[in-house]
Write a protein that binds this DNA or RNA. Structure first.
Lengths: 206, 206
DNA sequence: GTCTATACTACGATAGAC
DNA sequence: GTCTATCGTAGTATAGAC
């Protein structure tokens, strides 16, 4: 399907150059089709952009479906189990951030975070919200000493540790004096991510 | 000075639309001057972009100079003092991220992190590196149980908690169901940031 | 459905007046 | 130093052939 090729190419180009910076000519060219195919399939540049957002939301939801399902089914009978589930969720998010094939998605989303449009709304509702609510629910169970807003803040900051792997990619590479985050470094980062999160979650609730 | 107005406007436009998306016409227009002034003062679009990066690096360095100076002078005699200094540094970074007037800087940098150019190099070397090295040095003193790479990972992840305040701004707002992060919420986030960091740093080194 | 051709607008760079 | 005028290029959209 040419429309699916156009979508993937569009995500890459929009992520790399931004909405204004990306050109429909270049996207069509890289997809080996005529520019007017975009008009036909998506109605224009804006339609293509929104379709790209939906595609990303579906992709993230699909990738996180397994871990979300596991967490929901398992419940959180004990405090230790709830902690383990938070760590599982964070690791899953971290692995997604470090995966090569989600690079373009991440760039697209980070751009949208700065000036959210309808596209961000779709990605948040479709993919981020379910994960966030699950995380907040678990942390609320673990840290009974925190009120609702504090729980949400803790969740947000915890996700920040994951986010820097992508949003601060260049700085992380410079700090470790490497050109790319290889498998070995990725494992180290995930281990520290888990350890840090465990420290925060284990704080005595009294 | 018209060139200084051009710089501020340029940072805003490049941060908002990206390098390709920003137009020198619009930048000149918003600066109430002719487009050819950019050629005269900065040699062209690219020169303006690099000058903007230098301007940001200088701005960050200036803002963090006080806290860096304090940390360096105080030294870190005791473990508790070193912890307090890390918290001070993180709070200072967090306040900068939450300040309204650094919004444009942050956007500019986040874009550069995705596809670093010469501009990122200048910002990293001029502003981020001194802060990072100070942070890493302190964490190394506090968490003697971690090796050098683990210390760097811990530092990076800790900064991630600060980064999400800007890079994940839209998502944070959605999680708290607000349109903007007001003073009250900012204080709450900084409090949790300090508490989380303290949990991580206090982990017994044995 | 996918192509070519074209209309129209906006871009960055530069030359030259003042 | 700052302006206007203009050049060549590249952008989106659209009409119409196949």
């Amino acid at each position: 399907m040419i429309s699916s090729v156009l979508l993937d190419t569009a995500i890459e180009h929009f992520g790399r150059h931004g909405y204004e910076g990306a050109s429909t000519r270049a996207i069509a060219n890289a997809s080996r089709t005529a520019m007017s195919s975009i008009t036909y399939h998506f109605g224009g540049k804006k339609g293509l952009y929104l379709a790209a957002a939906d595609h990303i939301a579906a992709g993230i939801a699909e990738r996180q479906a397994a871990v979300l399902q596991r967490v929901r089914e398992a419940g959180a009978a004990t405090r230790e189990q709830a902690i383990e589930e938070v760590l599982m969720l964070l690791e899953s998010l971290g692995r997604m951030m470090l995966a090569q094939d989600t690079e373009h998605w991440a760039r697209f989303i980070i751009r949208e975070q700065q000036f959210p449009t309808e596209a961000f709304h779709r990605i948040f509702s479709g993919a981020m919200q379910p994960i966030a609510e699950t995380l907040i629910g678990l942390i609320g169970q673990i840290r009974t000493d925190l009120d609702s807003r504090e729980v949400r803040a803790t969740a947000a900051l915890m996700v920040g540790q994951v986010l820097i792997l992508r949003a601060g990619h260049a700085a992380v590479c410079r700090v470790f004096e490497v050109l790319e985050i290889d498998r070995d470094l990725a494992d180290l980062l995930i281990r520290r991510l888990r350890a840090n999160a465990r420290c925060i979650l284990s704080e005595k609730p009294e």
